[in-house]
Computed example of a mutant assay.
Amino acid sequence: MPSALIIGIAGQDGSYLAELLLEKDYRVVGAVAQGESESLDNLGTARDRVEIVVTDLTDKGNLLEVMGGYRPDEAYNFASQSHLNTSLDEPVVTGDVSGLGVTRLLEAIRRASPATRFFQACSSEIFGRHPKEVPQTEDTPFLPWNAYAAAKLYAHGIVGAYRRSYGLFACSAILYNHESPRRRPEFVTRKVARGAAMIRLGLARELRLGNLEARRDWGFAGDFVRGMWLMLQHPEPDDFVLATGKTHSVRDLCETAFSCVGLDYRDHVVADPDDFRPSESASLVGNPAKARRLLGWEPEVSFRELVEMMVKADLESLRNAR
């Protein structure tokens, strides 16, 4: 039975990956930060089939102990400060966890479990506000614009350094926005899905958002974790862009979400300048051709199917809570 360690299993990606690996008969060990072991709702019924261990990416001794104790065939790292506003408020913590934490993790693998295949979740934010080319590929120049992106670029670079210097099977995915009903409420896709559901149920009258013209390359998290797994099955370690290659605006998102509940978004959505995101990226859209060619990976869930899935889940959740 193959084994996998998922660092950050409590989050959206970690929980979808756990379900995928359990379907493939893996032994799954989920690593969580201190205090997170009680917050595993995303795992649902899979919780009883997952072993949980507490890890700290700022503690190299802890990481050595975990890696040496489990020696997993595969390790996936999702632990990060992923919300931009929080990373701007806490840039030192962001760098320590999202950047240096990856170095500590790789060093633990090198010393205690060198046969482990390692996956690192990086971000399209490393291309900056004004990417040098559109769409972006694995070879597009990097130009991070904030602490989160800079930390992710460091992580991306250190993965390649350990691969080249020590021969580790270490891969980094440049991930574009990927969403699901498990996305945290502060992200715009979930704000819109939940907002549409609340207004449909009479629990709210309006939804205040930032820039409705901002565009994103949005895909389904379940599709993306399949791509992550495929990266570690490939004969050679490498880095890949995982993206849909298509963009939609926040306005498109609102129109689709509200149409799912029979409403016109124009009657309920208010653009609030106070909610405009700092360091807005203008043209982030990925080219997943390499992943398609070498991994056989293709996104399967369309934008509309994704939004409908999220709105339906929030409607059900809100109705059950009444």
Rank of each mutant, 00 (worst) to 15 (best):
I6L: 08
I6R: 04
I6C: 03
I7K: 01
I7Y: 07
I7C: 13
G8R: 03
G8P: 09
G8T: 00
G8K: 04
I9S: 08
A10G: 14
A10Y: 00
A10F: 00
A10M: 02
A10D: 05
A10N: 14
A10P: 01
A10Q: 10
G11N: 07
G11D: 09
G11S: 04
G11I: 05
Q12Y: 05
Q12V: 01
Q12C: 12
Q12G: 03
D13Q: 07
D13G: 12
S15E: 03
S15K: 00
L17R: 05
L17V: 06
A18L: 04
A18P: 04
A18H: 01
A18G: 09
A18S: 10
E19V: 04
E19Y: 06
E19Q: 13
E19D: 10
E19A: 13
E19M: 05
L20Q: 09
L20E: 12
L21T: 09
L21S: 12
L22W: 05
L22K: 10
L22P: 11
L22H: 11
E23H: 12
E23G: 12
E23T: 03
K24I: 04
K24M: 13
K24E: 13
K24C: 09
K24A: 14
K24S: 13
K24N: 14
D25G: 08
D25Q: 15
D25K: 15
Y26N: 13
Y26S: 14
Y26E: 13
R27A: 04
R27D: 02
V28Y: 13
G30C: 07
G30M: 06
A31N: 00
A31S: 12
A31W: 06
V32Q: 00
V32S: 01
A33F: 05
A33K: 12
A33N: 11
Q34E: 14
Q34M: 10
G35S: 11
G35R: 07
G35K: 09
G35H: 08
E36Q: 12
E36N: 10
E36H: 07
E36T: 00
S37N: 06
S37E: 15
E38V: 02
E38D: 15
E38A: 13
E38T: 12
L40C: 10
L40H: 08
L40M: 12
L40Q: 08
L40Y: 02
L40R: 08
D41F: 11
N42C: 11
N42A: 15
N42R: 11
L43M: 05
T45W: 03
T45V: 12
A46V: 01
R47V: 07
R47H: 03
R47N: 01
R47T: 08
D48M: 07
R49G: 09
V50C: 03
V50Q: 06
V50E: 04
I52C: 06
I52S: 05
I52H: 07
V53I: 14
V53P: 07
V54P: 00
V54Q: 06
V54T: 15
T55H: 13
T55M: 11
T55P: 00
D56R: 14
D56L: 14
L57Y: 11
L57S: 08
L57I: 09
L57Q: 14
L57E: 10
T58F: 02
T58L: 15
T58D: 13
T58E: 15
